[in-house]
Amino acid sequence: MTQDLLYSITGIVLFGIGLFGVIAAAHIIRKLIALNTMGIGVFMVLLAAARHGVVTDPVPHAMVLTGIVVAVAGTALCLWLALQLQLLDSPVPEEPP
């Protein structure tokens, strides 16, 4: 088994674990961690594709960088929504001055 194939399969397994987590987990933080695991799985497959040929291909690296930025933005948006919901349910008591 070549190295890049091993990395690709690991990536797909990570994607599967994450997918299971997103569907099965009840808590929003768990779901978000699972989504990020899926993302890392995809990035592994992309990085392995970069080493597929004789020379290292820079295009997948650029894609992974963009993917990381998107993942950060998406996770932040979800966390903000979850926080707003939490605040609606139980407002934080104001701290005494």
Binding site: I28, L35, V42, V45, A49, M63, C78, L85
Partner: peptide
């Protein structure tokens, strides 16, 4: 907010499936 959170999770899940497909295509 509940609807938006559900929409966000579905959307991100969809994007990741799409991205894995693109990764396979590139490979």
């Amino acid at each position: 907010l509940v609807a938006a959170l559900r929409y966000a999770l579905a959307g991100l899940l969809g994007s990741l499936c799409y991205l894995l497909g693109v990764a396979l295509l590139y490979r």
